[in-house]
Simulated assay, not measured.
Amino acid sequence: MIRPLGWLLVAIRLGLMLAWLGLCIVLYYIWRTLRPTNPWPSVFLGGIAWIAGVEVTRTGTQTPGHHGLRGAFLLANHVSWIDIPAIAGTTGSAFVAHDGLAAIGPLRWLCDMNDTVFVARHDRASVGHQVEQVREAIRDTGALTIFPEGTTSDGTDLLPFKSSLLSALDPIPAGIAVQPIWLDYGAEAGDIAWVGEEPGLDNFLRILARARPVALTLHFLPPLKGEALTNRKTLATAARAAIVEAMNR
């Protein structure tokens, strides 16, 4: 249950988020008339994470290039809605999302700004189109993040990685790295995680009501190499194994 002080924090943070959104939208459209690439979606998302009280730190070596990750597919575990603004603000990455989100008008509009690729999970006929969308997104942003679990976990373990979600990466374009990331919320992962029957709005408000900051470490693990890059199934297996190994250290 959210206490009165928590509701005050929610109100303050929501107000700041709306003000930040308005400013970033103006800057996004101004910038779009001047430059081919637009940094404001990732700047906006990074600001959302900061306003929500998320303190992001990084470990490991990022793939070299623009935003530190020019030409990279990032395969990450998924714990909370916080994952998205934290990764975007840190790497400039776009995302792969299920096509159900595309039906929500305002959310679709914001996702399109950040070059989100919407995947129809059960429509095999659309895979070719999705592959081209993936290629376009990687050209525009330099990095594309996929959550191969397909849903959120409790942050203490990994669900199986669904290789079907990696269909658009098979085959991998030449010169593109595939790098696993472990999103580590530490001892408070269970409190942050959006799992079970909790509605998404309740999780969102619960996080905003926290007085304590949310400590999140992004562990950039070594890019996959060799046989791990053979196909989508080997990608899923190798990426999951790398994250599990990091979690168990």
Rank of each mutant, 00 (worst) to 15 (best):
V56P: 15
T57M: 07
R58M: 15
R58K: 15
R58L: 15
T59P: 01
T59N: 05
G60N: 10
G60P: 01
T61Q: 14
P64Y: 11
P64K: 08
H66K: 03
H66C: 01
H66A: 13
H67N: 12
H67F: 14
G68E: 02
G68F: 05
G68K: 00
R70V: 02
A72G: 07
L74Y: 12
L75V: 11
L75F: 12
L75S: 10
L75H: 09
A76H: 05
A76P: 00
H78N: 02
H78K: 00
V79E: 07
V79F: 07
S80I: 02
W81H: 06
I82G: 04
I82Q: 06
I84R: 00
A86F: 15
G89L: 12
G89A: 10
T91V: 10
T91A: 14
T91K: 00
G92I: 03
G92T: 01
S93P: 10
S93Y: 11
F95P: 04
V96G: 02
H98G: 11
H98Y: 09
H98D: 09
G100S: 08
G100T: 15
L101M: 15
A103I: 13
R108L: 06
W109E: 14
W109V: 14
L110F: 15
C111R: 01
M113E: 08
T116D: 13
F118R: 02
F118T: 03
V119I: 14
A120K: 09
D123I: 10
A125G: 14
S126N: 10
S126A: 12
G128K: 15
G128R: 15
H129K: 10
H129G: 05
V131R: 04
A137F: 07
I138D: 11
R139V: 03
T141A: 09
G142D: 03
G142T: 04
G142Y: 11
L144S: 08
I146T: 06
P148S: 05
G150Y: 08
T151I: 12
T151V: 11
T151R: 14
T152V: 03
D154Y: 11
D154Q: 07
G155V: 04
T156H: 12
T156Q: 13
T156W: 06
T156I: 02
D157I: 03
D157K: 02
L158G: 02
L158P: 07
P160Q: 01
F161V: 01
F161Q: 05
K162L: 03
K162A: 03
K162H: 13
S164E: 00
L166T: 08
S167L: 08
A168Y: 01
L169R: 06
L169T: 10
D170H: 04
D170L: 01
I172L: 15
G175C: 06
G175E: 01
V178D: 00
P180W: 04
P180S: 06
I181Q: 00
I181C: 01
W182F: 05
G186S: 10
A189D: 13
A189E: 12
G190N: 09
G190F: 03
G190P: 02
D191R: 11
